[in-house]
Structures are given as C-alpha cells and as structure tokens.
Simulated assay, not measured.
Amino acid sequence: MNTEVIGTWAGLVWTALNESGKMNVKALKKATKLKEKELYAGMGWLAREGKLSIAEIEGDVELELIG
C-alpha cells in the first residue's frame, strides 16, 4: 500500500460524501465498496487534510465533508 492508493481511497470517500452529505460508516462502506481498512485509511487522509468532520452520535460514527 502506498500514498497513491490511499489517495484514491480518499477520493472515493470524498465523492460518496459529496454526493450524499452526512453518512455513517456502514453506509459509506457500502457506497464506496471499500474494505474496512481501506475506508479508514481514506477517512484518515481526509481528516488529516481538514476535509472531514467525524462525530459519534448515539453510538454511531457520522461523517461529513467540511467546507
């Protein structure tokens, strides 16, 4: 795994959130068709860039793009 691949996964996460707005991890995983570790790597990339809001609501993790 290299940064180019992780960047591609981040792009899939960004696209899904951009099209659908807020999503939980389960819905995002289904929308992107990524494996769990791939999904979290992409989420981490976007979070590190300050492009992702992550909140825990009623025991579920909800994600949303910032800006």
Results as ranks from 00 to 15, higher is better:
residue 1 M to E: 11
residue 1 M to H: 14
residue 1 M to P: 06
residue 2 N to V: 03
residue 2 N to M: 10
residue 2 N to R: 13
residue 2 N to Q: 11
residue 2 N to A: 12
residue 3 T to Y: 13
residue 3 T to I: 14
residue 3 T to N: 13
residue 3 T to R: 15
residue 4 E to Y: 09
residue 4 E to M: 13
residue 5 V to Q: 15
residue 5 V to M: 15
residue 6 I to V: 15
residue 6 I to G: 06
residue 6 I to P: 02
residue 8 T to W: 13
residue 8 T to I: 13
residue 8 T to K: 12
residue 9 W to V: 04
residue 10 A to W: 00
residue 10 A to R: 00
residue 11 G to W: 05
residue 11 G to C: 10
residue 11 G to T: 01
residue 12 L to R: 11
residue 12 L to W: 07
residue 13 V to N: 04
residue 15 T to R: 07
residue 15 T to F: 07
residue 16 A to P: 01
residue 16 A to F: 05
residue 16 A to S: 05
residue 17 L to S: 00
residue 17 L to V: 05
residue 18 N to T: 00
residue 18 N to E: 05
residue 18 N to V: 01
residue 18 N to G: 15
residue 18 N to K: 08
residue 19 E to P: 08
residue 19 E to W: 10
residue 19 E to R: 15
residue 19 E to N: 14
residue 19 E to C: 04
residue 20 S to D: 13
residue 20 S to R: 12
residue 20 S to C: 13
residue 20 S to L: 07
residue 21 G to K: 04
residue 21 G to P: 05
residue 22 K to N: 11
residue 23 M to C: 08
residue 23 M to A: 12
residue 24 N to Y: 12
residue 24 N to T: 05
residue 24 N to W: 10
residue 27 A to C: 05
residue 27 A to E: 12
residue 27 A to P: 01
residue 28 L to D: 01
residue 29 K to V: 06
residue 29 K to D: 01
residue 29 K to G: 03
residue 29 K to W: 02
residue 29 K to R: 10
residue 30 K to G: 01
residue 31 A to L: 06
residue 32 T to D: 02
residue 32 T to K: 02
residue 32 T to P: 00
residue 33 K to C: 11
residue 33 K to G: 09
residue 33 K to P: 02
residue 34 L to K: 02
residue 34 L to N: 01
residue 34 L to A: 02
residue 34 L to M: 08
residue 35 K to V: 06
residue 36 E to A: 10
residue 36 E to W: 13
residue 36 E to H: 14
residue 37 K to I: 11
residue 38 E to Q: 15
residue 38 E to F: 03
residue 38 E to T: 03
residue 40 Y to R: 10
residue 41 A to V: 05
residue 41 A to I: 05
residue 42 G to Q: 01
residue 42 G to I: 06
residue 43 M to A: 06
residue 43 M to Q: 07
residue 43 M to E: 03
residue 44 G to E: 01
residue 44 G to H: 04
residue 44 G to Y: 03
residue 45 W to N: 04
residue 45 W to R: 05
residue 45 W to L: 11
residue 45 W to M: 11
residue 46 L to Q: 00
residue 47 A to K: 06
residue 48 R to D: 10
residue 48 R to T: 09
residue 48 R to S: 11
residue 49 E to L: 14
residue 49 E to F: 05
residue 49 E to N: 09
residue 50 G to V: 10
residue 50 G to L: 07
residue 50 G to M: 03
residue 51 K to H: 08
residue 52 L to C: 04
residue 53 S to Q: 12
residue 53 S to H: 06
residue 53 S to G: 10
residue 53 S to C: 08
residue 54 I to P: 04
residue 54 I to C: 09
residue 54 I to K: 04
residue 54 I to H: 08
residue 54 I to E: 14
residue 56 E to V: 14
residue 56 E to A: 11
residue 57 I to R: 13
residue 58 E to V: 08
residue 58 E to Q: 12
residue 59 G to F: 06
residue 59 G to M: 11
residue 59 G to C: 09
residue 59 G to Q: 06
residue 60 D to H: 08
residue 60 D to K: 12
residue 60 D to E: 15
residue 61 V to A: 11
residue 61 V to M: 11
residue 61 V to R: 05
residue 62 E to R: 08
residue 62 E to C: 09
residue 62 E to S: 07
residue 62 E to F: 14
residue 63 L to Q: 00
residue 63 L to I: 08
residue 64 E to S: 15
residue 64 E to M: 14
residue 66 I to W: 00
residue 66 I to F: 02
residue 66 I to L: 04
residue 66 I to R: 13
residue 66 I to S: 07
residue 67 G to P: 07
residue 67 G to D: 15
